[in-house]
Design a protein around this nucleic acid. Structure first.
Lengths: 203, 203
DNA sequence: ATATGAATTAATCAATTGATTTAATTATTT
DNA sequence: AAATAATTAAATCAATTGATTAATTCATAT
């Protein structure tokens, strides 16, 4: 009977370290030490560093889209409400685990095929969603001739980018952590307003 | 008399590889091979892998802000014109060298002190700029009670993020390279419009 | 209790790493 | 042309890497 507490400890340590320093930046001994296990166990459970990494990678991608999945295909909520929820939810994700987002972006840029071949995020995940259709209808109703993808990209960009570029922004504007955190919190209400303005949604 | 063509070849190879795979992902032998030189030369010129890396790192940061410096303190151009120039210029930078941006973001997130201690980008680089003052005046004129930093963050986010998240976006919306490139080109005119709408600039 | 297979450990492997040394070659100066 | 300095190459260093081995402990079922 397997009690996977050891396997889990290894995965947790690996997830933390890989997301922080990437595949090449992490030593298997480092993972073993953080997990409090003998380094041979890592290979006993996962065969190789690379196999362990791929598991962490795929789980990380899913982690990034887990909460999106619940929202974007809900037919009972308005477009406006979905915008609020997505911006709010994504800000929470990226504030709680900023390394996750950078890690995934990096890895996918270096190896775009990973997403297609291994991950469980289906292609057209977003384009076929109810959310995307709601945006399209609103754009048509207001005679705005752009792809709904622009709106989605804008939402994610405005929400995620300032957090992962925080060290840069803090320096360029010479502001402290507390102050910056306040600015980000303001964006929780500002971003939905900006997006709705782009869509000419009146409330 | 030093003719630095060798030194330059090493730096060019190092820049390309470091920006692509990060410090840990690159082997000194790899740099030497790409530069077409013996690996001992790398240490002869730069003492160590780390010293070489820091040079590349600082130059990369400067590369990211080089063209900004020319624009943001020009008193003779309008705010509207600066927005056009910055979005346009940054889109060119990030399209030409998308790895550069991801590389710098990563490295600064892992080691924020690098920016403060070693780089030549001054703190308050942006907050003290003429551009920032122009934004502030416009916000006050229109009684919009937000920090000008929001506007700057929005400009950069809308411009940069979609490019570095391209593999993700392509997959989630199931679109091809050509099509995606067209979308990005559309943003060249769209982003300034959105930003000016946020600032309530009429043209 | 004993047998069986899973879980764990310590020791060690070959390969690779950044770095150094030593010697040879090339360029510059005298 | 001789002397000196700058540049390049080949060989090799000790340390670290991911991975494997073989022996031991543990848990569970009979």
């Amino acid at each position: 009977m397997e009690h996977d507490s050891t396997e889990l400890k290894i995965k947790e340590a690996a997830r933390k370290l890989f997301q922080e320093k990437g595949f090449e930046g992490v030593r298997t001994r480092e993972i073993a030490e953080m997990a409090g296990i003998n380094s041979a166990l890592l290979h006993y459970y996962f065969r190789s560093k690379e196999k362990l990494f791929r598991i962490i990678m795929n789980e990380s991608i899913q982690e990034m889209f887990a909460f999106l999945q619940q929202i974007i295909n809900e037919p009972s909520t308005s477009l406006s409400h979905k915008i609020d929820e997505i911006v709010n939810g994504y800000l929470n994700v990226v504030l709680a685990t900023p390394n996750l987002v950078l890690f995934v972006l990096n890895e996918l840029y270096a190896n775009p095929k990973l997403l297609i071949k291994e991950s469980k995020i289906p292609s057209k995940f977003l384009s076929d969603s109810y959310f995307s259709r709601q945006i399209m209808e609103q754009l048509e109703a207001q005679s705005i001739a752009i792809s709904p993808l622009h709106i989605v990209m804008n939402m994610i960009s405005l929400t995620v980018m300032p957090v992962i570029a925080a060290p840069l922004a803090k320096h360029l504007y010479n502001i402290e952590d507390d102050n910056f955190r306040q600015l980000i919190e303001q964006r929780r209400t500002l971003i939905p307003l900006w997006i709705k303005e782009m869509l000419q949604i009146e409330e």
